[in-house]
Design a protein around this nucleic acid. Structure first.
Length: 546
DNA sequence: AAAGAGTGCAACCGCCTGGGC
DNA sequence: TGCCCAGGCGGTTGCACTCTT
C-alpha cells in the first residue's frame, strides 16, 4: 500500500540517523528499567531485528528482545508487531466474502472475542478482525442495514453454522451488540456462571429476544453506551439503572410520566453524560417517577421510597450542559420510548427490519416525532393516570423529554440532527415495540411496575432473590411469582406470554415459549429467572402479585 | 486546487489472568 | 497469601490516505 511504501522509505531514512540521535520525548518512553523505548510506527530495520530474533529464539519471552537485540521496543510492542505483521502465513488484504460471512457468524456467537475469532480465520489477526468489524459497523450503520445479515441471524439463532462452529445454540450477548448495552454482558456472564449450577441454564437457548431487541443497534462507538470504554463499561455495571414505574400505567397502557422523583434517574443519565430532563421540569411539573418494576397489586411495599428533589435543583440552564459527551442516542431513544403514548393501533412503524427489537429496540431506536408535540410538557402535568386512549396527556413528562430534546436539536445539542441514530432506520417491524406501546398493560388486573431496588445486593438478601428480576431481560417475568401464578393454566400462560411479548417481539416471545417449554416446572423457571440472573446487581424488583 | 470530512489501519493503553516466587 | 511479571485481550487513539465539496 502506498502508505506502507511511503513509510518504508521514511523508515530507511530514519533508521540511518536514529541511533545516536536525540530521543524525542514524544517518540520514546522510558521503561521501568530506565531504558528508553520507542513508540510509534515500526521501521523495517526494527522489523528485521525482531524477525531475526524470533527465528533464532522463537516466539515468547518478548521482553528479552530488547535485552538481547537492543531493539528499543517493549515486549508488548514486539509481540504485537510479530503477531499482527511479521509472523509468517499472515493473510493480508481485504477479507473474502467467506471470511466476512464467517466473521459475522463468529461475532454473533462469540461477541467481541477477537482472538477467538481469529483462531477460526487462519492468517487473520484479532486486530484485523476487530478493525474489520468496526469498519463494518460503520458501513452498515451508514447504510441503515442491520449489523447481521438475515442468514446469519437464522443460522445463529438456530445453532447452525456454515463453518461447523456451534456454540451450543447459545448466542453471545455481543450478538446483541452487548457493548452497546453492557448489562447484557453481565447477564450473560451471570448465566455462564450459573451454567454449572443450574442445568437448565446450560440449556439456555438463543437469547434471540435480546438479539431482536438490539438488532440493528450497532456499534459500540456509535451509541452513548457504546462510547463506553472499559472503564465506563464497569461503570455501567455498577450503575443503578432506573426503570420506569409501570404501575403508573393505566389499564389502557398509557404511562403517566408525571411520577418522577428522586435524583436517581438524573444521576443515571448523568453517568452517561446525559442531562436528565426530568430535573428540568419547573416547579409546577411534579415528577414522581418510580424507578421500579414490579407487578403491582396495589401494594408496592417493596418499592423503595424516594425523596423528591426540588426541581430547581437542576435548573433548565443545565439543558445545554451536555459537556463534551457525544450525543446520547439512548436517551434520545428513550425519549421516543417515553413520549410515545400513541395507541399502537394508530401507529405505522417506519422501521424496516424484520427483526423487531422490542423494548430495547424501541428504546435504542428513535422514532421521529412530530414537532407539534413540542412544549406539551409545560402545558400538561400529572394526573395522567386517568388518561384515556388516544390522549397524549399521559405523556406530560414524556413531552417534557420531547420539548427539551427538541429544543436541544441545535448544532450544539447532543440530540441535534447530527445524532447518528437519527440516521439509523428504526428496526421495529411490528407493533409490539415499546416506543409505540407502553410496555405493560394490566394482566389479571395487575399492572407491571418497574421498581428500583438497591444496587447493593448481597447474598443475604436471598429472601428477595426470587423477586429480584432484571427488567432489562426480556424474560424477567419468568422469574417472577407472577409466572408461577400465571402458569397454572393455559389462559394465564397466554396472558403471561402476551405480557412478555410486550417486552419482546413476537419471535422473542416464541423463543421464550420454547425455552420454557422444556422447563415446565414453574418453580424451575422461576428459579431460573430469579437465581441465574441475580448474581448481577439487581435492577428491578417484582413485587407481590394480586 | 485546497480544505475539511471521512475512512481504515497500525499501534498503544489499560486491564486481566496465570504462573512463579 | 501477596507480590511481581509476562502475556493476552479488547478498546481506543493517532495519523496517513481518500473522498467530497
Amino acid at each position: 500500500m502506498m502508505r506502507r511504501m511511503k513509510k518504508e522509505i521514511e523508515d530507511e531514512m530514519l533508521d540511518d540517523d536514529r541511533i545516536g540521535s536525540e530521543f524525542n520525548d514524544e517518540e520514546y518512553d522510558r521503561s521501568a528499567r530506565g531504558v528508553l523505548l520507542k513508540k510509534g510506527p515500526w521501521t523495517s530495520a526494527e522489523d528485521d531485528i525482531l524477525v531475526n530474533y524470533v527465528k533464532k529464539n522463537g516466539e515468547g519471552n518478548w521482553n528479552a528482545v530488547q535485552k538481547q537485540t537492543g531493539l528499543l521496543r517493549c515486549g508488548k510492542s514486539c509481540r504485537l508487531r510479530w503477531a499482527n505483521h511479521l509472523r509468517p502465513n499472515l493473510k493480508k488484504g481485504t477479507f473474502t466474502a467467506e471470511e466476512e460471512q464467517l466473521i459475522c457468524e463468529l461475532h454473533a456467537k462469540l461477541g467481541n472475542k477477537w482472538a477467538r475469532m481469529a483462531a477460526h480465520l487462519p492468517g487473520r489477526t484479532d486486530n484485523e478482525i476487530k478493525n474489520y468489524w468496526n469498519t463494518r459497523i460503520k458501513r452498515r450503520h451508514r447504510a441503515g442495514l442491520p449489523l447481521y445479515p438475515p442468514e446469519v441471524l437464522q443460522q445463529t439463532l438456530h445453532g447452525q453454522s456454515t463453518d461447523g462452529i456451534n456454540s451450543g445454540n447459545k448466542v453471545h450477548p455481543d450478538f446483541l451488540q452487548k457493548k452497546n448495552f453492557d448489562i447484557h454482558d453481565a447477564i450473560y456472564d451471570c448465566m455462564k456462571d450459573n451454567q454449572g449450577m443450574l442445568p437448565y441454564v446450560a440449556e439456555l437457548p438463543d437469547i434471540s429476544a435480546y438479539s431482536n431487541m438490539l438488532n440493528g443497534f450497532d456499534s459500540s462507538q456509535y451509541s452513548s453506551f457504546g462510547q463506553s470504554t472499559s472503564s465506563n463499561h464497569k461503570h455501567f455495571r455498577d450503575s443503578t439503572i432506573p426503570f420506569l414505574d409501570f404501575s403508573c400505567i393505566d389499564r389502557n397502557g398509557y404511562y403517566p410520566f408525571d411520577h418522577i422523583q428522586d435524583d436517581t434517574f438524573y444521576k443515571w443519565t448523568q453517568s452517561f453524560g446525559m442531562q436528565s430532563p426530568l430535573h428540568h421540569a419547573g416547579p409546577s411539573s411534579h415528577s414522581s417517577m418510580c424507578y421500579s418494576h414490579s407487578l403491582k397489586n396495589g401494594n408496592s411495599s417493596t418499592s423503595k421510597p424516594f425523596e423528591e428533589l426540588p426541581s430547581i435543583q437542576y435548573p433548565e440552564t443545565d439543558l445545554g450542559s451536555w459537556g463534551t459527551s457525544p450525543p446520547p442516542p439512548l436517551l434520545e431513544s428513550v425519549d421516543d420510548f417515553i413520549k410515545s403514548p400513541t395507541p399502537i393501533s394508530t401507529l405505522e412503524s417506519d422501521c424496516s427490519s424484520p427483526q423487531n427489537s422490542g423494548l430495547l429496540q424501541s428504546v435504542l431506536y428513535p422514532r421521529k416525532t412530530p414537532s407539534s408535540s413540542k412544549n406539551q410538557f409545560y402545558g400538561k402535568s400529572s394526573n395522567s393516570s386517568t388518561a384515556t386512549p388516544g390522549e397524549r396527556a399521559d405523556s406530560s413528562a414524556l413531552n417534557m423529554y420531547d420539548t427539551e430534546w427538541e429544543e436541544s436539536a441545535d448544532p450544539v445539542s447532543p440530540f441535534g440532527t447530527s445524532s447518528i441514530l437519527n440516521e439509523c432506520p428504526a428496526v421495529s417491524a411490528n407493533r409490539s415495540s415499546l416506543d409505540e406501546q407502553p410496555p405493560v398493560h394490566t394482566v389479571n388486573g395487575n399492572t407491571v411496575k418497574l421498581e428500583y431496588v438497591d444496587p447493593v445486593w448481597t447474598p443475604d438478601s436471598g429472601n428477595q432473590i426470587t423477586s429480584l428480576l432484571n427488567f432489562s431481560r426480556p424474560d424477567f417475568l419468568l422469574g417472577s411469582d407472577w409466572y408461577e401464578q400465571c402458569s397454572g393454566n393455559d389462559q394465564n400462560q397466554s396472558i403471561f406470554y402476551d405480557a412478555t411479548s410486550m417486552f419482546l417481539e413476537d419471535q422473542s416471545a416464541t423463543d421464550y415459549k420454547h425455552m420454557t417449554a422444556g422447563t415446565s416446572n414453574p418453580s424451575q423457571v422461576r428459579e431460573f429467572g430469579s437465581c441465574a440472573w441475580n448474581n448481577m446487581p439487581p435492577v428491578c424488583q417484582v413485587s407481590d402479585l394480586g
